[in-house]
């Protein structure tokens, strides 16, 4: 039996208060939350993890088929909640693609989640003119995969023996280096494809939990109009535009994100 908490490198901070579950996006690991978590240390139990294939997760558990669909990442979230016997009251905080992961998880298990906070969400990164402009064309995303190949298949990987892979045992069990954003090339490719080619627009109306959408004003990954689009499709959602440039307000402008989360948590606590 796989230990889920080890598999996903789960860390829990604090021992009282409601749960905040933080999910990192494509590219990095749970370390992206370092500037947010101190603000909730005394009021919440904070749960951090790495998706399988990212950060310091157990790479041996990586499975191309499972993680070629966002459902694989959704299952990571649900596995962790189950391993910790969480049944309700969880606030999900997801960045980028993990916003979609959280929404899908809340559709699967609405009772588990109290509310969701989505930082830089996008239900679909591709343009579907004339009605939807996710920001990118298919060729852009193919270029991205090639760029990732160039960056991740470093010299060590060029020279590593080609594995014929007759059985599971002979699979590569690479240890990721400790540096931030280090990632396994195969897992990163799969995560990139899953992230950028997913289209979850039809799932938005199926979400029943309240959501806070934090949209960056100048985000090269997510056009401003996407925030409005999601707000319109998610019943009972609140849209807040952060007046920042970039896609990682929780890192570049943590105080803005903390303030927005505080405000949202207090409002929805009043409502409930």
């Amino acid at each position: 039996m796989i230990n889920i908490l080890e598999r996903n490198n789960v860390h829990i901070m604090g021992d009282t208060g409601p749960f905040l579950l933080y999910a990192h996006g494509f590219g990095c690991s749970q370390q992206i939350w370092d500037r947010i978590t101190p603000a909730f240390a005394s009021t919440h139990r904070q749960l951090l993890f790495d998706f399988v294939g990212s950060g310091k997760s157990n790479l041996a558990s990586f499975n191309v088929t499972r993680y070629s669909s966002l459902q694989g990442y959704v299952q990571d979230v649900l596995d962790i909640c189950d391993a910790l016997n969480l049944e309700n009251g969880v606030t999900f905080i997801g960045h980028s693609v993990s916003a979609s992961v959280g929404l899908l998880a809340s559709i699967a298990r609405p009772e588990l989640f109290d509310r969701l906070i989505l930082i830089g969400p996008s239900p679909c990164y591709l343009n579907y003119p004339p009605d939807y402009f996710g920001g990118f064309e298919t060729e852009d995303l193919i270029d991205l995969l090639a760029l990732m190949d160039n960056n991740y298949i470093g010299w060590a990987n060029y020279l590593a023996p080609v594995i014929a892979g007759e059985s599971e045992d002979s699979a590569v069990s690479t240890e990721l280096t400790d540096s931030f954003c280090s990632t396994d090339p195969v897992a990163a490719q799969v995560f990139a494809k899953t992230t950028f080619f997913s289209d979850n627009r039809i799932d938005l109306p199926r979400v029943s939990r309240p959501c806070l959408i934090l949209q960056h004003r100048h985000d090269n990954l997510v056009p401003l109009a996407i925030g409005d689009y999601i707000h319109e499709k998610l019943q009972g959602s609140i849209l807040k535009v952060l007046d920042v440039r970039g896609h990682c307000a929780h890192m570049s402008h943590p105080s803005l994100v903390i303030e927005a989360i505080h405000e949202y948590l207090s409002t929805s606590q009043l409502c409930s």
């Binding site: 996006g25 494509f26 590219g27 990095c28 992206i32 980028s96 920001g135 990118f136 064309e137 852009d140 995303l141 193919i142 270029d143 991205l144 090639a146 760029l147 990732m148 960056n151 931030f180 954003c181 950028f196 985000d219 090269n220 990954l221 970039g246 896609h247 990682c248 890192m251 570049s252």
Partner: peptide
């Protein structure tokens, strides 16, 4: 565009 995605997903988080 592809390099912009890479900038946003990797490089800025690393720099930050």
């Amino acid at each position: 565009p592809a390099s912009q995605i890479f900038l946003q997903s990797y490089i800025w988080p690393m720099l930050l």
